[in-house]
């Protein structure tokens, strides 16, 4: 039963992650990422981390990826991305590299054998244990992460803020933003 669930969701994760990487449309790629995230969340539950599984869906699928979709739609990237394909040169470096990596990891496990998974201890699954560790041994990292999120919120607000009229043009003439060799800027929004 457990093996079957693992196989189904592992296959789903790999297939959907391939779509993420290969699909031309950013919306399809983003939706496939949701499938990948969901599959990995199921695997988290299978590994005895139901809390992380729920968090994965709540934070990743429920918030981060929605943000991606929001930006894709806001910028109307469908047309912009049609021209942006893949670079052949980089693919010929990336593909052998990735295959080499997977092959190496596979070789290691093949040589090392496949140790069975340790039985699940109640201690590992319990939320209380996780919370206690988080708020005692890992309190400092926790607080730093809180600070990081605050900085990120402020940073994102500042970065995405529409500059007051004229401010950007005073810093740099508009033409300077267009690099040499670029075709003239067109309105992306039709």
């Amino acid at each position: 039963m457990e093996t079957l669930i693992f196989l189904i969701f592992a296959a789903l994760a790999v297939a959907s992650s391939l779509v993420v990487v290969a699909h031309r449309s950013p919306v399809y790629a983003t939706m496939s990422l949701v499938v990948t995230l969901f599959s990995v969340a199921v695997l988290f539950v299978l590994l005895g981390a139901p809390f992380l599984g729920a968090l994965q869906i709540l934070i990743y699928a429920g918030a981060i990826v929605v943000l991606f979709l929001f930006v894709i739609m806001l910028l109307n990237l469908q047309k912009a991305s049609a021209a942006a394909g893949r670079r052949g040169g980089q693919l010929w470096v990336a593909l052998p590299g990735a295959l080499l990596f997977v092959g190496m990891v596979g070789l290691v496990f093949w040589r090392a054998g496949a140790p069975a998974l340790q039985p699940l201890t109640a201690d590992l699954v319990s939320l209380k244990g996780l919370a206690t560790a988080l708020f005692s041994d890992y309190l400092l990292p926790f607080e730093i992460v809180g600070l990081l999120l605050l900085v990120a919120v402020i940073g994102a607000t500042v970065a995405a803020r529409r500059a007051p009229d004229g401010e950007a043009s005073r810093l740099l003439p508009r033409e300077d933003f267009v690099g040499a060799g670029d075709e003239p800027r067109k309105e992306a929004r039709s």
Partner: peptide, 19 residues
């Protein structure tokens, strides 16, 4: 490892920032 490798290929070959 597989997922990581697929992600690496994507990060290296895609040109769209969001991808």
């Amino acid at each position: 490892a597989l997922l990581f490798a697929i992600g690496t290929i994507g990060a290296l070959t895609r040109r769209n920032g969001i991808s």
